[in-house]
Design a binder for these strands. Structure first.
Length: 850
DNA sequence: TGGCAATGCGCC
DNA sequence: AAACGGCGCATAGCCA
């Protein structure tokens, strides 16, 4: 029963292998690798991919001998088989599968998924979704695509997805469990009339836990409408209401009465949401304030801290064998399988037949409630209730920011845009004169022009052959020209020379064909083009990204409404978009685009050296605790230069520039050393040779042996703890699969990075919540302004400034102590101003009056 | 034409 | 031996 292949003649072929009589699962790979060819067997357990697959199946208690393994292409090819080869192999593969009559086919990787299941989208999108496949007149089977094991070895973060999919494959193929359980549409109740509302209401009032889900036409809370509200009150039960029932009606008072009842219901029940921030923004703006009890997205992200996979549909498909009901709904209503443009989507969404939308909405609410029942047990079991509560409280805080928005000073914005446009135009004159055909926004064209046409050389006069520049060459080159160019010195001392990719197999370092700013500051010594290019790029970035965002995301109220995403960050930080406010350039002009509402002042507060304090607290290093009572960066200068206090003071008097340079270097050591940064990478920023940097680091660690020991123990703690890091708030970063030495090293550094980064974030969040609460407790009107990792912002009335500043200072210093972070003190800087870029330290503000 | 990965750069 | 973490957004260029 071997597979025939007559189309191509490219050497050795590897036939399928395993149980040929109705196997419960057939695995389909791409094409045989080295080991597979040697052994004549796809997914050979002696190859790395095969080994991983066999191990997982063994762990799932599946007898390997019952399974079957094959590839799309029988002959080996480097990398993924090209389309023409797949085409040639297609008929043979289908004949093979038809003869096997498998219960389930698991295509592994993009090529196999597309060949077997005819999936249109990439593997990361379609993985884990089940389809039926007709193989012949009498043979129908199921398909469940997943990643290729080789992809997991390259990107171990995907391991959990592979495992999930294979568990599902075993459930379907081996255990015969149903692949898909449709939602109980017949039990969902569409509510159009007052009579129907009255009939169902008692059921809602009897429930303890309800899941709530809204359908709206867009994201514009103040302009658009709520279409439907679904309330699931028991497993498989949901009432889906026409929102018109809750709209105030000039003819009758019924709408007003109904929304009061709704408000009371949602306030007294424990409410469950998926992505609560969205729904409560709409409800709050209609004066409905639900008792936010559980958020399924937050819960799932805490249980799986990776970026994606927390959508309602993937979760319900995974945990409840749901069909892709959202995709089906969108397809039958002409919305496309996925959302293309939000505006288009909104318009079409409003035109959908109401009953259809109600069924869709009811399924959403029902699945949300059912997932909450599952997740809450797991959250409890994993001892994550504290961080769960905190993130949900934060949801409410940043929904306030989203609804209220931030004020924009249009005059400042316009002036700044004019300035950038002028800078761009100036630079363009030079760039076009020198190279009219080169697009300065194209790295490809730039490297061809700078290196091939002009023949410029990079750091250390190396030829631009694309090789990585060794760090000591980089450092030496920069040291040779130190002091000749102040701008370049500053840039090099404060920026990193290379981009580091998340993938572990990729190296790091600076390409000798780089066209980034770091290299341009070197090239500008050789030719006028790079200097103009630096100006062009800087102004372009600021104009397009930071000014452009304001226009792009401003609502009709003239404000911007940043959308805080509290989940999806590997280390528990928060993110914002539309626009992002976590990466605004630290420049007065740009921050001054943002201002307080009339009559109010922005108060900004941040912790001094928050991450160093966390390290000191968590490691218990008393020397670091001592440093933090004074100036930790000066302490590092003393350590690495072997100075005592007096000698340091002398240095400051004798050579202030040298003192500052040393302090800057100390700062990079303080911030880099704990995150695993090595001498090679630090040397350029320290203005040292690699050898000198190594000595500096050695002196640094000599002074902090306890902290060093803590840092070095992280990886063994991971291994001792089920391959999980647990942060002080109970949040987790999991590494279920360690694939190589370099991966283990990287994971070790993350063991330091993760608890610090997440704890700084959560401490600051607790503080933000407490500050707002304490200010309001004494009757100060308070607006929530952004949280940025280790700093918070609020707006208060101008005449309450001094009182508010004191409350903030007291609250911020105390919150970490009360939360148990009492190994160190938590000093705070507080600034105030009507514009975000022109803030003054409050001490200075009130000096004259006190 | 739109999806996608890559390049580059802004922040803590 | 290697060797800095996390993110969002704009742009170009390749591919279906």
């Amino acid at each position: 029963m071997s597979r025939k292949c007559t189309e191509c003649h490219s050497g050795e072929k590897v036939q399928g292998y395993g149980n040929r009589i109705s196997p419960p699962i057939v695995f389909v790979g791409e094409s045989p690798g080295e080991n597979e060819v040697r052994e004549g067997r796809p997914f050979s357990p002696r190859g790395k991919s095969g080994q991983l697959l066999h191990q997982i199946m063994k762990d799932l208690d599946v007898d390997i001998k019952t399974l079957y393994f094959t590839n799309v292409c029988m002959c080996p090819c480097r990398g993924a088989p090209p389309a023409d080869k797949v085409h040639m192999c297609y008929d043979g593969l289908m004949d093979e599968l038809e003869a096997l009559k498998p219960k389930l086919i698991v295509p592994m990787g993009n090529v196999a998924a597309k060949a077997v299941g005819q999936y249109e989208k990439g593997i990361s999108f379609v993985r884990g979704s089940y389809r039926k496949l007709r193989l012949g007149p009498s043979v129908t089977t199921g398909v469940l695509p997943t990643y290729h094991p080789a992809a997991i070895l390259r990107n171990p973060d995907l391991f959990r997805d592979l495992l999930t999919d294979l568990e599902k494959a075993v459930a379907i193929g081996v255990e015969g469990r149903p692949a898909v359980i449709p939602p109980p549409y017949e039990d969902y109740e569409p509510i159009h009339t007052q009579e129907e509302l009255e009939a169902v209401w008692p059921k809602l009032e009897e429930a303890k836990l309800i899941a709530v889900d809204l359908e709206t036409a867009s994201r514009y809370v103040y302009e658009d409408e709520i279409l439907i509200i679904g309330i699931s009150y028991a497993k498989g039960k949901c009432a889906s209401f026409d929102w018109a029932l809750f709209e105030p009606n000039p003819l009758t008072l019924q709408g007003k009465r109904n929304i009061k009842r709704l408000a009371k219901l949602l306030k007294t029940k424990k409410c469950i949401f998926q992505t609560a921030g969205f729904d409560i923004a709409w409800l709050w703006s209609r004066s409905v304030f639900p008792n936010l009890w559980f958020d399924t997205e937050v819960a799932h992200w805490l249980l799986d801290e990776r970026e994606s996979g927390h959508g309602l549909e993937p979760m319900a498909m995974r945990y409840l064998s749901a069909p892709p009901w959202k995709a089906q709904f969108r397809t039958r209503n002409g919305l496309g399988a996925y959302i293309a443009s939000e505006e288009q989507f909104g318009a079409k969404f409003s035109a959908i037949p109401q009953d259809d939308m109600m069924m869709y909405n009811a399924a959403d609410a029902d699945y949300t409630r059912r997932l909450a029942m599952l997740f809450r047990k797991e959250i409890k079991k994993q001892n994550m209730e504290r961080v769960m509560r905190l993130v949900m409280d934060a949801t409410k805080l940043y929904t306030e920011l989203f609804l209220e928005g931030m004020c924009i000073d249009m005059n400042n914005l316009e002036a700044l845009e004019t300035k950038y446009k002028k800078q761009i135009a100036e630079a363009e004159v030079i760039l076009e004169k020198l190279a009219p055909d080169v697009n300065p926004r194209s790295p490809k064209q730039l490297s061809a022009y700078l290196y091939d046409q002009l023949g410029l050389t990079t750091f250390g006069d190396l030829p631009a052959d694309g090789a990585e520049i060794p760090m000591d060459v980089l450092s030496k080159a920069m040291m040779d020209v130190e002091g000749e160019d102040v701008d370049a010195d500053l840039y090099w001392k404060t920026s990193r020379p290379a981009l580091f990719s998340g993938r572990i197999e990729k190296g790091s370092g600076l390409s000798s064909r780089s066209t980034g700013a770091f290299t341009l500051f070197w090239l500008k010594r050789q030719h006028p083009y790079p200097a103009a290019l630096i100006q062009y790029k800087q102004a372009q970035k600021r104009l397009k990204t930071y000014c452009g965002a304001i226009h792009k995301f401003m609502w009709t109220d003239g404000r911007i409404h940043p959308d805080y995403r509290l989940v999806g960050h590997l280390h528990g930080r928060f993110r914002s978009s539309r626009p992002t406010i976590h990466n605004i350039p630290n420049e007065t002009d740009i921050y001054n685009i943002y201002c307080a509402p009339p009559g109010m002042t922005i108060l900004h507060a941040d912790y001094k050296q928050a991450d160093l304090r966390l390290i000191a607290h968590m490691s218990g290093d008393q020397e670091l605790v001592r440093w933090l009572k004074g100036d930790p960066h000066a302490e590092v200068v003393k350590a690495i230069r072997h100075l005592n206090d007096e000698q340091l003071k002398e240095l400051e008097k004798r050579d202030i520039n040298e003192f500052r340079r040393s302090r800057l270097a100390a700062k990079s050591i303080n911030f880099g050393a704990f995150y695993g940064r090595g001498a090679e990478s630090m040397a350029p920023q320290l203005g040292l040779t690699v050898k000198e940097a190594r000595l500096y680091l050695r002196e640094y660690w000599k002074r902090l042996p306890v902290a060093k020991a803590w840092m070095d123990s992280r990886f063994s703690e991971l291994l001792a703890n089920g391959q999980e890091y647990i942060g002080p708030f109970g949040n987790k970063r999991r590494f279920p699969l360690l694939v190589s030495e370099s991966h283990r090293w990287r994971v070790g550094t993350l063991g330091v990075n993760f608890p610090i980064m997440s704890s700084v974030n959560y401490l600051t969040t607790m503080t933000h919540i407490a500050v707002v609460k304490n200010l309001r407790a004494v009757g100060i009107q308070t607006l929530v302004y952004p949280h940025i990792h280790d700093s918070i912002n609020v707006c208060v009335p101008e005449d309450k400034l001094q009182e508010a500043a004191q409350i903030i200072k007291d609250t911020m210093s105390q919150v970490p102590i009360d939360a148990g972070f009492d190994g160190v003190t938590w000093p705070v800087d507080v600034d105030a101003g009507t514009h975000w870029g022109s803030m003054v330290a409050v001490e200075n503000l009130f000096e004259s009056s006190t």
